[in-house]
Design a binder for these strands. Structure first.
Length: 430
RNA sequence: GUGGCUGUAGCUCAGUUGGUUAGAGCACCUGGUUGUGGUCCAGGGGGUCGGGGGUUCGAAUCCCCUCAGCCACCCCA
């Protein structure tokens, strides 16, 4: 092995040791629990797809951001950077058979060939929640409610996180009123989306590139910058967009009725960078604003059609595990999980190993988590091992026909009883 | 993909203007304990100083390349 090489994990990837895996499972399990109680059903798709599935929606430049390869049959494939296109593909395939609204969620593992930074890796997990087949703003409200339901469940309060809600049609409408050309619209929105993240000079440059005049930039910024308390009157004053205005007003009414409005606020700066959003959009941030967005989403009524399906309304969001974990750690909301075991079986005195193995097997047969020491050593050592393993209790076996001891390792209390009684108790609590 | 900073045991870090065989705490393992744990005491394993090359009598230390992490761009589905 003189030519042995130390191969490290690939840039932007993570190893999940048992400690890390417990955290990952806790996050994913909580995502599932919240999804299910909000009426969403789980789906999944292949981890790689035809490259075209991803480029159709977002253009060829996106190809630089994903891991693509050619298989032995010459097919251009890519590891999924998001799951929404797969979702659209799956929904399209059975569009006439699925009862609507389609409320689905997934916890896919995704890969993007980006440069890793704090809160951004090349491989990560993302909770996706979508409602397809409804134009009603109730669908948007349900998605936002589900996101907040999760945040609340893990102990985050309105002091910790905020859902900033915007409306693309509102901003587009305003830009039209200001005389911005349709052709410049997408670029203008991209500039506005970046505004909080870049310098004033860079923003001016972006706007100039989009063909906006200084007057137009000044007017739209003035419109976006109003205090949140005035945002509703502001919407009411806008003319000629009744449907989208009503959606905004109803959204707030629904979220108030569901009791999650304290987590939310209108913020017209939120327009999302991607072109395919068509309605209400939102992003979840930490209150201090020191991290990237924890989650983001909105309505995308054209996407299913673009991917070869009927024109059908859709809305949803994604929440990544990386920023979320950082936020939870900052806020001291991570669960203190430890390796756990129900019983650690110990042999006392001259108890034969075969009896220990029998007891272990009987406990396991009844669904109890049980383990034992591979070493035949004194009771003290075995108890030490039991403690190290995080066992709730030690089962001390003394010999055939003799009572066993059940020692609670948290408080040291020990009770003796016949093995049969112990096992039948396990049967009952099973 | 571009630039800046960083890189010493599993973890947190020492390591003095380059100078013997690179250290500490925690963690891990073993023993003290023919026998009821967490404490304590003693001992031990584990690092080619991220990797490669160069300068030098001599490199963890200086130089170059590379890999990775963090940060700023790009991008953010």
């Amino acid at each position: 092995m003189s030519d042995a090489k130390n191969i490290q994990s690939v840039k932007g990837t993570r190893d999940f040791y048992p400690d890390d895996m417990r955290l990952r499972n806790w996050i994913a399990d909580t995502w599932r629990e919240v999804s299910l109680r909000n009426g969403f059903e789980e789906y999944d798709a292949p981890i790689f797809e035809y490259l075209d599935l991803f480029t159709i929606k977002s253009g060829d430049e996106i190809a630089a951001q994903l891991f693509s390869f050619t298989d032995r049959g010459g097919r251009s494939l890519a590891i999924r950077p998001e799951i929404t296109p797969s979702l659209a593909r799956m929904v399209n395939a059975r569009i006439n058979a699925l009862p609507r609204p389609i409320k689905w969620f997934s916890v896919p593992r995704l890969c993007r060939a980006e440069n890793p930074q704090r809160g951004r890796l090349r491989e990560f997990f993302q909770w996706n929640v979508d409602v397809i087949g409804s134009d009603d703003v109730l669908a948007d409200a349900e998605c936002i409610y589900t996101a907040v339901d999760f945040l609340r469940q893990v102990g985050l309060t309105p002091d910790d996180v905020v859902v900033r809600i915007g409306s693309r049609p509102l901003v587009v409408h305003k830009l039209r009123q200001l005389g911005v050309a349709e052709a410049a619209m997408d670029q203008a929105l991209v500039a506005l989306d970046r505004r909080p993240k870049i310098s004033a000079e860079a923003f001016a440059e972006q706007c100039a590139k989009a063909g906006l005049s200084d007057e137009q930039v000044g007017a739209i910024c003035e419109f976006l910058d109003v205090p949140e308390t005035d945002s509703l009157q502001q919407v009411a004053a806008v003319e000629g967009m009744d449907g989208d205005r009503n959606a905004i007003l109803q959204l707030r009414t629904h979220l108030e009725a569901m009791g999650v409005w304290p987590y939310c606020r209108f913020d017209w700066h939120i327009v999302r960078g991607l072109a395919y959003y068509t309605g209400i959009v939102y992003e979840v941030f930490d209150a201090a604003g020191s991290l990237r967005a924890v989650a983001g989403g909105g309505r995308y009524d054209n996407l299913v059609e673009v991917l070869g399906g009927p024109k059908i309304g859709a809305t949803g969001f994604g929440m990544g595990d990386v920023v979320l974990a950082i936020l939870l750690k900052d806020k001291d909301k991570l669960p203190h999980t430890a390796g756990r075991l129900d019983y650690f079986v110990i042999d006392d005195r001259e108890c034969p190993l075969s009896l220990v193995l029998q007891v272990v097997s009987e406990i396991r047969k009844r669904g109890g988590q049980a383990d034992f020491s591979y070493k035949r050593q004194n009771t003290g050592k075995q108890l030490k091992e039991a403690n190290r393993r995080g066992a709730a209790a030690a089962v001390i076996v003394r010999g055939a026909g003799k009572p066993i001891g059940i020692k609670n390792l948290a408080n040291g209390n020990q009770t003796d009883q016949p093995l049969e009684d112990f096992l039948s108790l396990l049967d009952k609590t099973r």
